[in-house]
Simulated scan of single mutants.
Amino acid sequence: MSAALIPPSRVWSTRTFDSVDPPIRALVIDDDEDFAQAMATVLELEGFEVRTADCVECFEITRRWMPSVVLLDMEMPIMNGFRVAQELRKLAHCMRVPVIAHTSLSEDDVLVQGIPAGIDAYCRKGNSPQVLVSLLRQLAPGRALND
């Protein structure tokens, strides 16, 4: 399958997710601090409440602040995104939080390990921010932010 035919985002999970009240709380986990901050800025402009963390800090953050949805980079040093997802799923308070693989890897490269790791959806880095915002809102259902 050519890269042009791979959808920019897709929900893999058949689970239903708990409704959330605005603002949707998004945790951006990425080892590239500049990229994470840029994503946070975009999401904040869309009405999200955002925290950023690397693959180690994310566990401490979730003890103090409960995300509605997690945006997770797959290629990180120390602990890759698959391992982070597995560890998040072991935490009782994070078991039902939707996790999106946000990566430059192709969907095929993430899918096989991603589903067993507890990842619910895929979004390719470099797509329009609106694709990502739409996916985040789909996985954190509830009242629309602009209502």
Score class of each variant (00 low, 15 high):
Ala3Met: 10
Ala3Asp: 12
Ala4Tyr: 11
Leu5Ser: 13
Pro7Thr: 11
Ser9Trp: 07
Arg10Phe: 03
Val11Gln: 07
Trp12Asn: 07
Ser13Pro: 09
Thr14Gly: 03
Phe17Val: 07
Ser19Trp: 08
Val20Thr: 14
Pro22Ile: 09
Pro22Asn: 03
Ile24Asp: 00
Arg25Ala: 05
Arg25Ser: 06
Ala26Arg: 01
Asp32Ser: 09
Glu33Trp: 04
Glu44Val: 08
Val50Trp: 00
Ala53Gln: 04
Val56Met: 07
Glu57Val: 04
Cys58Phe: 02
Glu60Ile: 09
Thr62Pro: 01
Met66Cys: 04
Met66Val: 07
Val70Ser: 04
Leu71Thr: 13
Leu71Ser: 13
Leu71Asn: 05
Leu72Ile: 13
Met74Ser: 02
Glu75Ile: 10
Glu75Phe: 02
Pro77Thr: 12
Pro77Met: 03
Pro77Ser: 05
Ile78Trp: 04
Ile78Leu: 11
Met79Phe: 02
Gly81Phe: 07
Gly81Thr: 10
Gly81Cys: 13
Gly81Ser: 11
Arg83Gly: 01
Val84Pro: 02
Ala85Asp: 09
Leu88Ser: 10
Lys90Phe: 01
Lys90Trp: 01
Leu91Cys: 06
Ala92Arg: 13
Met95Thr: 15
Arg96Asn: 05
Val99Arg: 01
Ala101Asn: 05
Ala101Leu: 08
His102Asp: 00
Thr103Arg: 04
Ser104Met: 13
Asp108His: 09
Val112Arg: 11
Gly114Gln: 08
Gly114Ile: 07
Pro116Tyr: 01
Ala117Leu: 02
Ile119Trp: 00
Ile119Gly: 05
Cys123Ile: 13
Arg124Ile: 14
Gly126Glu: 04
Gln130Tyr: 15
Val131Tyr: 03
Leu132Ala: 03
Val133Asn: 02
Ser134Ile: 04
Leu135Cys: 10
Leu136Asp: 02
Arg137Lys: 15
Gln138Cys: 09
Leu139Pro: 04
Ala140Ser: 13
Ala140Val: 09
Arg143Pro: 02
Arg143Thr: 13
Asp147His: 10
Asp147Thr: 10
